[in-house]
Each structure stands twice: as structure tokens, then as C-alpha cells.
Design a protein around this nucleic acid. Structure first.
Lengths: 366, 366
DNA sequence: AGGAACGTTGACAGCGCTACCAGCAACGAC
DNA sequence: GTCGTTGCTGGTAGCGCTGTCAACGTTCCT
């Protein structure tokens, strides 16, 4: 009679159905919507599947149902600590769900992102997580037209494609500068690398805060398109110092740069924070154990990833969030590297405390 | 007459074939083995596909061909810098190929690994990359039985399941200790965290080198199962110092710990390398710009990932490597933190120079 | 009692592609 | 001229699953 097994010896749904004494379609329903079955059949199918060690064939399912159970994730870098934390959150949230993660690296290129997006969309993903809010017009059009939920992560801005979760890099930078002013620092330099859109917005925040205080000077800003590194932090700081020897603080666009600045100060025997205060961005783990401990702006990267994936999965399954845009905030973590310069410290940038917003979430490390 | 388009408006192979004036099967062949077509048909299909913007339906292909074009990758951690470098190599190598990467995180649990392996294998991956050589018996049996190429990465050992690419953590640790002895250090402590199999083998290498020199003392070893961090490095070093105040060097199982030790030394005003020498492991980027610069054992992580994926893809396509086991070696990068203690330095551990092996490969950073 | 409404189940017909094998032309060997 | 042999092409028949819709039994309402 008919074959009982697929060529490869794999168990098919039909075998499970036969053992359970139901039709294949009923068995199929068990895996997709168990509540639709009577309790009796449900248990029968369940034990039959377990007995045979049945594993659904995802390709067949995808072909028949015209959709996949794949969540596409587009991030700019695999190396950057920031993204590995986000990714960990995404993977953690997807675990236990039926969805699997398909990851691609845009290498900070929106053209590459557009290409990958086209590829992803052609396979009808269940949902999509994309980084940032600066897509090409073409990408944006594809995202708008996509018939799956989409979450933009890492920052927040006007008109989300669908959902959005992140924080304001602009406000975060302003808060960092406000903190430095509160501590009595006035001539604050900016060191930035890679200059992706988020770093650019941190620079914008720095510029606006400095202008508010009447202290802005283009010569205080050193940036490069080169990928960030600790060594680069030292090199950029060296440039800055040559230009502005009487600078009294540096705001670094990320913690690697900050660590490089710290090392460079040590090399040059510049006292931190005595002569130069340092503030980083992201609050990576090492910032708290450096000597001196380094002030940084803490961001909820793991939570961002985890929440993004959770929201996305909920949306895929029809449970859309009340609020499509979620601001996870940030917090200036004040440490030794930026402590008070003099006693007459008074805020020169307004709204410092108010800009310091952070939703309480448990931090989790691998 | 029949439908010209799929419901979703997507272009199918049939449309391409029709436009090209060939049968669907010929069009299909074009995408899998263009050489099998006559030049005339090949160009006809090619331009038809381009004109229609055809994208193959991977689910249908997988269902019909009974195999997927997915490479499964199992790694223990998404956060660890070491794995992000390896991953970058894997993704870089897969780019441009027809294969996509399916990543899963075992969280350093071989039981979790076994579970994921079962899941992966059920979907018939084109190939598999697994971390390390310590699988459960069950996992090993599944891997042996799998009908796809497999690469084990991160270390090398006896009986590979299939292919293997990595280096000897044992030898690398021995080389690090040998270097310290050459520089005149004698009482060398060991600081390790997480204690996964590879860290354990580094410890074994340390122990054997210390025993060879007649200097081994269990009290010089401090380890913990806790995940690694910079802060932890400082804490473990503090323990070690309390136990053995006259220790003159520390070998750290990774660079984060080494950085923590450096900061702790600074905090306690212990001169490095004057009073304590420090050697790390992995040679992360910051090691070269710390003050003092930190000695470390360089490993070819990016190349390991890239080569593993390349070998795997070649094997999938029938081009098996002459050598299934590839040793990528390591190199002790000597820096200030371990420079000579006295002038009468002489090797106390043999084979120091010989153990220092490294295949010349271009290092690439993101 | 009749019928609407609901919950549960099954039959059928593909999803878009490729494995398999057959067919056909062109060519050379005998 | 016959018979392979090779190179290319096409027809047929699924791959394993699910969408759709119809059918059934039961309950509840009027």
C-alpha cells in the first residue's frame, strides 16, 4: 500500500494522525491551535507525536501556508558590544517561541540594508527588526508595503514604520553634557568615531548643549569615519589635545573611545578627573572597574532587544501593543572620572535632571 | 489560461520560464547549475529572471529537494567578544554564497547544545558548525549520523566528527607560561572564570608548565564558574593576592580578566610589570593600548570563523579539504606588562619558542 | 418542534519547486 | 545503416503541509 514513511525515514504528520486515529488536518491543527481540538483528540495527538518523535517539516509548512516563522533582524555590526547585547535580548525572547531568527549584517550601509531587506521580504518573514530610523526611501517603501509587523530599534523618532523602541541619543548626549557642566566643567571636547546616524545625533545633542551654554567651539569636536576602537580613542584625544590644550573634559561617543582616552591620559600623566574629566556612552561593564571609574550614559540594550522581539512576536500573533513607540530611556551613571572640578558648580544647561530618564528594568548579563 | 501569478502577486519560476520560452525545469536548472544549459537558453532565462525580478521560493525549493540551504551554527555565547569575531568570519564567508546562517546559543550547556542539535538536524541543514569538542555522547551520535558536513571550531583534538579547525588551548597556555619564565617570573598565578572546556584546557596547560618548572602550587590558582568580566578579574586577583602576596606574575584566562587585574593593580599601587607581570588571552584590541600595554596570546578568531564556513561550504558542494583538521595556531604577543624582571632570565619551561606557532593570516577588524 | 449558532472534524486541492526519467538531436564508431 | 554515446530539454509526479469549505453533532433559543 501507500508509503508509511518519507524516503528519509522521517515521521510525517500523516503517521502521527494515523496513530492518533484522526485525520491529518486535525493533527495539523494540534500544532497550530491546540485549543480548537477537543480535549480527547488533543491528548491523543500529543502522545502520538511524542511517541513517534514527530518534528514538523518547516519547509512544507512555509510552502503551504505562504508564510514563514522567521523573524528577520538587520543590524549594522556583529562586533560592536552594543549590538551583541541587543541580539542576546532578541534571541532570549525568541527562545521558546515558534519563531527563529534570521540575522544579517548591514555593515552600517543603508544600501546594503536595502538589498538585504529585499531579500528578506521575498521570503515573507513573520516579522522584521531593523536598526535605526534612517532607511533609504526605497527601503521605507518596502517596509510600509510589507505585510508583517516591523520594529525599529536603537532610537526613537517621528513616524515609525510600524513599532519603534529605543531612546533619544540627542537627549542622552545633552544629559551627559549637562552633567559635566553641573560638575563645573566648561570646555568640553567631543570625540566620535564611525559617525553612524546615532553617533551623529549624539554629536548634535552635544553641540546643542554646548551652544545653550555659550561654550560651543567647532575646534572642540574631533570625529572620524573610521570604525571605533580603544586605540582610536587615544589617537583622537591626542588630536583634540593638540588643538585645545586647556580643555577640561571630554565626552566620548562610546565607551571604547573613553577607555582609550583614559589610557592616553595615563600615558601623558594627565590627572583624571583633576585635569580632564571623561564621560563615555553605553556604560559597558568595564567602565565601573576602571581606575578611576568612568562616568557613562547607561542604555538598556538587552531590554531593547528583548522587548523588541517580544513586541514583534505579540504583534505577529495579533496582539498589538497599545503604544507602538516605546522610549526605554537612559541614565547618566556618575563616577569618579567626571567628579566636581570646583565648588561653585551650577548647571549651565537646563533640564539636566529631567533629561535623565530611565525606565527601571532588571539588567541582565550573560 | 491558468493563473499567471501566485496569489501574493509574486513571480514564480513558471513565469520566468514562459518569458524565456523554455520549460520550468530548464529555468530551474539555470539557478542550480547554469553550466548544464546551452548558452542561448542560459542568457534567455537570465534576462527573463532579471526583467521579472524573480526571487526563488526557498520553502518550495527545500520541500522539493529535501534539503535546505541553511548552515546551522551553535555557539556558547553571543556576548563574548571571542565569538562575535568568529561569527563575523562565518557571516563574511557565507555572504555571496547561497547559504544562510542559522544561529543558536547553547549558553555553555552541552545539554542545551544537544537539544538544539536535534532541532537543527530535523530540518536537514546543508552543514553545521559546532563549538568545541566536548559534545554529549548523544550529540556526537547525532552528528556522526547526520548526512551533512560538520565543522568543529575553537579547538582541535583527537577524532574529529568530520572537519575541525582551531588551536590547542593547552599549548597556548604553556607558551604563555614559558614566556613569563623566560622573562624571569617564577611565582605565576592563574585567574580563570566561566571554566568552560577551553578555559579548563588553558588551566591544564598552565598546571603542566608550572609542574615542569617545579613551581606549581594549587594556591596559585583561582577560578570561578561565574561568567567572566573585568570587575571579576579584579576580584579574583584580590583573592589570589591575599593568599599569595609574593606572587610575581598572573596569567589570566582571558583579556577581560587581565584588564580587571591591571585596574586592581593600579588601585593598589602595585607596579606592572615591576611587581606583578600580567598576561592575558585572546589579544583583544584594547590590550595594545592599555598602560602599560598588556601581553596576550593572539588567536585567529575571525579567520577561524571565515575558514570554517568556507571549508564547510566547499564540503557541501563536494569539494572536501585534503586536510580535515586545521590548526590555526596562536602567538604570544609580548608587551610591557610582562617584560623582564631580572637580567638572569633563562627558560625554565622547554619548547617555548617552538610552541609559538601562528599561521600568517591577515587580521581583519570590523 | 424547528432552526440557528456553535464547536469540532474531515476532504480536497494545491503551495512552487525539483528528482527522476524519458526523449530527442547530433555525432562518431563500426 | 545501425547502434551507442553525449548533451540538452521536457513531462510527470510528487515533497509534507495547510487554506478553504463543507459536514456533522450538539446546544440553545424561540
Amino acid at each position: 500500500m501507500g508509503r508509511k514513511r518519507t524516503k528519509s525515514g522521517k515521521i510525517r504528520l500523516a503517521e502521527v494522525a494515523e496513530l492518533a486515529g484522526v485525520s491529518p488536518i486535525t493533527a495539523s491543527r494540534f500544532f497550530r491551535n491546540p485549543e480548537a481540538l477537543s480535549v480527547a483528540k488533543r491528548t491523543r495527538v500529543e502522545s502520538a507525536a511524542k511517541e513517534l518523535g514527530y518534528v514538523p517539516n518547516l519547509a512544507a509548512r512555509a510552502l503551504a501556508s505562504q508564510r514563514t516563522e522567521v523573524i528577520g533582524v538587520l543590524i549594522p555590526s556583529l562586533t560592536n558590544n552594543v549590538f551583541s547585547d541587543v541580539l542576546r535580548g532578541i534571541y532570549d525572547a525568541s527562545e521558546g517561541s515558534r519563531y527563529s531568527i534570521q540575522l544579517s549584517n548591514t555593515r552600517y550601509s543603508i544600501l546594503q540594508e536595502e538589498k538585504l531587506l529585499r531579500l528578506f521580504l521575498a521570503q515573507k518573514p513573520a516579522g522584521l527588526i531593523v536598526t535605526g530610523i534612517d532607511q533609504t526611501a526605497e527601503s521605507r517603501a518596502m517596509l510600509q508595503a510589507a505585510d508583517c509587523p516591523i520594529v525599529q530599534i536603537m532610537e526613537i523618532g517621528p513616524d515609525p514604520v510600524d513599532m519603534m523602541i529605543g531612546f533619544s541619543h540627542y537627549d542622552a548626549a545633552r544629559a551627559a553634557i549637562a552633567h559635566l557642566f553641573e560638575q563645573g566643567h566648561r570646555k568640553v571636547g567631543f570625540v566620535g568615531a564611525r559617525m553612524d546616524p546615532r553617533v551623529q545625533r549624539r554629536l548634535d545633542g552635544y553641540v546643542s548643549a554646548m551652544k545653550d551654554a555659550g561654550s560651543f567651539d567647532q575646534r572642540l569636536v574631533v570625529t572620524t569615519a573610521t570604525p571605533t576602537s580603544v586605540t582610536l580613542g587615544g589617537a583622537l584625544f591626542t588630536d583634540l589635545l593638540a588643538r585645545e590644550p586647556d580643555m577640561d573634559a571630554v565626552f566620548c561617543a562610546n565607551d571604547d573611545l573613553a577607555l582609550g582616552v583614559l589610557f592616553e591620559c595615563r600615558r601623558r600623566e594627565i590627572a583624571v578627573p583633576g585635569q580632564i574629566a571623561i564621560v563615555g556612552f553605553n556604560d559597558l561593564e568595564f567602565m565601573a572597574s576602571a581606575v578611576p571609574t568612568l562616568t557613562s550614559v547607561r542604555t538598556n540594550r538587552y531590554e531593547m532587544g528583548k522587548t523588541a522581539a517580544t513586541m514583534l512576536i505579540n504583534a505577529i500573533e495579533g496582539r498589538r501593543p497599545e503604544q507602538p513607540v516605546l522610549d526605554l530611556g537612559f541614565k547618566v551613571i556618575e563616577r569618579q572620572s567626571s567628579s566636581a572640578r570646583r565648588s561653585d558648580s551650577r548647571p549651565a544647561v537646563s533640564g539636566a535632571a529631567a533629561a535623565n530618564k530611565m525606565i527601571a528594568l532588571p539588567s541582565s548579563h550573560d
